[in-house]
Amino acid sequence: MGSGRLKFIVGGIFILAAVVYLIFASMNENAEFFMTVDELQARSQEVVGRNLRISGAVVGSTIQYDPQTLALSFEIANVPGDNAEIEAQGGLAAVLHAAVVDPARTRITVVYYGARPDLLRDEAQAVVTGHLGEDGVFYADEILLKCPTKYEQAVPDQAEGN
């Protein structure tokens, strides 16, 4: 009986090992660092060329778009990465607003080639995926945008017609 079961145990371990190997083989290449703009500035040397995902507040006045070449560029300002911190500072909408109006915030220029996304506007939260170039510009392959003002508001702002 011992040897009979053994082959299954060996086979099972073999399969598990293969799965683990496959995971590690694709993990190293595909892990993206998720950073704030501040963190990116602080570690810019070591992360050049790496897969990155950066979150920040879109500064509306810096959006430039050429519909002919589909070249899009804009700046994002630093917002905290931690949800608890965002809540402590009055919620996402307030944090994004504060980030955009504060000229002292760290900012980074994002360049993207493609159609301009629907939700790209002032004080939207942008999560950009791509890599940091040697020139300090962030080259994005993908842009995710969230406009917090509407869907994360828990209660209405003011009373209407009691």
Binding site: S26, E29, N30, A31, E32, F34, N51, R53, G81, T129
Partner: peptide, 8 residues
């Protein structure tokens, strides 16, 4: 913080 894209 890190994330995995579909490529992983």
């Amino acid at each position: 913080k890190i994330t995995f894209g579909p490529a992983f």
